[in-house]
């Protein structure tokens, strides 16, 4: 292959550049790892491994290009190669538990209608977040991945195609199926809560 020559950086310079360019992606990268593995320790390992790989290949990384997409791609590949086999079963939603909380006496409270309304608003926010997480975690990992990349991290279809190594057409169809699947799970939940869409 062709040589990656250019200016030879000292280790200190290289490390400083590496940290400045790639460490700001730590938060989204860790969140992505967590949504893939559904386990904090696995996410931790996966992110560390991703950064070590990135460091090894840092000479091939062009300054100013999309560091976030580059790291996401490395992480996704590491996940496929090493973590997928041992990744745990997705958490199942326990609707009865949620309903129980919702109908509990605490929510009715002593403060009458007004405080009930306030508590409902706040707890509904939490419930929605938990419910979206459960529905998402119950999706196959390929579906979960496109939804996270698109809706949570705001990658374009083109960036997603590069991260996942698939054509844009596949990104589109996978995203469409993923959303239908997520919608179906959330609609079931909405019905169980007595809402009709």
């Amino acid at each position: 292959m062709s040589e990656q020559t250019g200016k030879q950086l000292s280790k200190e310079e290289k490390d400083a550049r590496f940290e400045a360019e790639l460490l700001p992606v730590l938060d989204p990268l860790y969140n992505f790892a967590y949504r893939l593995t559904l386990d904090e320790d696995d996410a931790n390992d996966l992110v560390q491994e991703t950064y070590l790989k990135a460091y090894r290949f840092f000479d091939y990384f062009e300054q100013g290009t999309n560091a976030k997409a580059w790291l996401f791609r490395i992480l996704k590949n590491s996940f496929i190669n090493e973590f997928r086999k041992k990744s745990k079963q997705p958490a199942k939603v326990d609707y009865s538990e949620v309903e129980g909380y919702y109908n509990s006496d605490d929510v009715e409270g002593e403060g009458g209608v007004a405080s009930t309304t306030d508590m409902r608003t706040e707890s509904v926010q939490d419930l929605i977040g938990d419910e979206v997480a459960s529905a998402l975690n119950a999706l196959p990992v390929d579906f979960r991945t496109v939804i996270i990349l698109c809706d949570l991290e705001g990658f374009t279809y083109e960036e997603m195609a590069k991260i996942l190594d698939i054509p844009i057409g596949t990104v589109r169809s996978r995203l469409h199926r993923a959303r239908n699947s997520l919608k179906e799970k959330l609609e079931k939940y909405a019905k169980s809560m007595g809402y009709n869409s």
């Binding site: 860790y30 998402l136 949570l152």
Partner: peptide, 16 residues
Amino acid sequence: LVSGHLKRVIVPESLA
């Protein structure tokens, strides 16, 4: 629902 309600997990301080 995903962009606005899915909670982000906190990165452990030790990781960086």
